[in-house]
Design a protein around this nucleic acid. Structure first.
Lengths: 84, 84, 84, 84
DNA sequence: CACTGGAAAATGCCGC
DNA sequence: GCGGCATTTTCCAGTG
């Protein structure tokens, strides 16, 4: 194997390692999340409802951003119409 | 509000915060991952293939072989030529 | 509301309806597809593999071969044994 | 090839055909959708905004269903029988 | 012609 | 163990 591909191989290997490292961390966080839900369950909370609450809070956030985006969108659409 | 439900509310709030915190961290890692793939792309690697490689490494060898075998089986039943 | 915008409103409404109609039909087809896969599963077929087969058939031969070649290249650079 | 696998092959082939047929139909609908959006654009509508409107109508629908689901969820968590 | 955002598909997880 | 749901990942069309 020549030097060029040897270098590329090293770079590839490095990317693969970084990716696998990050995915490992993500997996750990997923497990932490599962644990927190379990703990909540152990404290008498209904996990399904808890998830729903989290989802709704996320959605409200998202919704707010959507509204903003829509306003921007209309604004630019009207701006473009005027420009032409 | 009585003491009992006040306590429950606090506990609930605490769970929600922990969950949202963890989800935030996961989201950050996902962005980091995206960045690494971008960087790899910038270095001339094919992201799609890279993802496939990562997936293959995740899979155990025998598992992968079983899957390949099944694909071959179905493919040959359908008269498909497989790439060598 | 004046005539011009009344007309535009009607036209808009008509587009929205046509779009939603088409999306509804698409959704129905997606459900049909799910059903067929379920039925295949009930007949002993491995759905995951079946999906892979369908994907392979969609891909042109040379395209598939190029992809396989790249995977081999990356895999061998990483010292991964490929299933034969 | 013996009779058993010959039969299985036929069944497999039949599933593959049904799936590909359905996917073909879906693809056609996607193209129809694209055409409608194009036509709307030709009539002076902003496609991006149009898509947003469609999405919002879908979301409002979805939202309503979510609310219903949440009520059911709380009701069942509290052990309340809901009217059927 | 690469990039972004949005649609579609696939995977994994949960309760039953 | 299976089906349904939610999340994640992949794909693709439109845009600059």
């Amino acid at each position: 194997m020549n030097d060029v591909s040897a270098v590329a191989t090293d770079v590839l290997r490095s990317f693969v390692e970084r990716i696998e490292r990050l995915e490992e961390e993500k997996k750990n966080l997923s497990e932490d999340l599962k644990d927190v839900y379990s703990e909540a369950k152990g404290n008498g909370f209904d996990v399904k409802i808890l998830r729903k609450i989290i989802a709704m809070r996320k959605m409200e956030d998202h919704e707010r951003q959507e509204q903003e985006a829509l306003i921007d969108l209309y604004a630019s659409a009207l701006g473009m119409a005027r420009a032409e």
